[in-house]
Design a binder for these strands. Structure first.
Lengths: 106, 106
DNA sequence: ACAACAATTCGACATATCTCGAATTATAGA
DNA sequence: TCTATAATTCGAGATATGTCGAATTGTTGT
């Protein structure tokens, strides 16, 4: 577990890998921007989109979409929660904050 | 060329892909942190490290290191400049700014 | 219990990536 | 010109990734 300047390189690399696929990046971007300005994205606020909504303008098979959601989840970028037949997705604000700080470290 | 919320998804994905490899991320992190605080990273300032210096604590073959440098360059994250036998590397502050803004878009 | 819908798992395939060693190019200095 | 050093290019091999279709699981409503 290599550590550099307070950042865990492996953790960051995993996050960037998850964002390196255009389809996944679009999913993430959509989740980030779906939160109403001024409010935090969190599970409590329920500012999320279900899996099928996230794949609407993506032209990938449901199985591929599911795979991408899991990748984002394993990288710690999003969290999920079942709501009836749907699975809602939410950005993890702490991880986003970590990434912000990385690029702000001069 | 897909565009979302003012961001070019392909461009961002290329940058994240370049940062998704732990070795490349460490190279980038080292370049980012080598700039003296308060100063901008730019070719003019010559606040760079040569290729071999960047690979010192990385335990990869020179050919691999060269490959990674080129990946970072193609993604627009760094710029290079020959100085005698060495090739100096510099972070591109504009690209870093773009990535900052992406994570700051709520 | 059954049908419909949402999502996941699994196996397979094509493609991309990471890495290396060997050979090559570029530069500086004797 | 010759040698040493820095870096790159090239080809190859192992591994990882993106994608799909088919089958399966979980949930709701009839």
């Amino acid at each position: 577990m290599s550590n550099c300047c307070g950042f865990n390189i492996e953790e960051l690399a995993d996050a960037f890998k998850a964002l390196s696929n255009p389809n996944r990046l679009q999913i993430f971007q959509r989740l980030v921007s779906c939160c109403t300005p001024g409010t935090l994205c969190s599970v409590e606020d329920l500012n999320g989109l279900c899996v099928s909504e996230l794949g609407e303008d993506l032209s990938v098979a449901p199985s591929t979409l599911s795979h991408h959601i899991k990748e984002l989840q394993h990288a710690g970028l999003i969290k999920t929660q079942r709501r009836g037949k749907n699975i809602d997705c939410f950005v993890d604000p702490e991880k986003v904050e970590l990434l912000k700080q990385f690029f702000n470290s001069q």
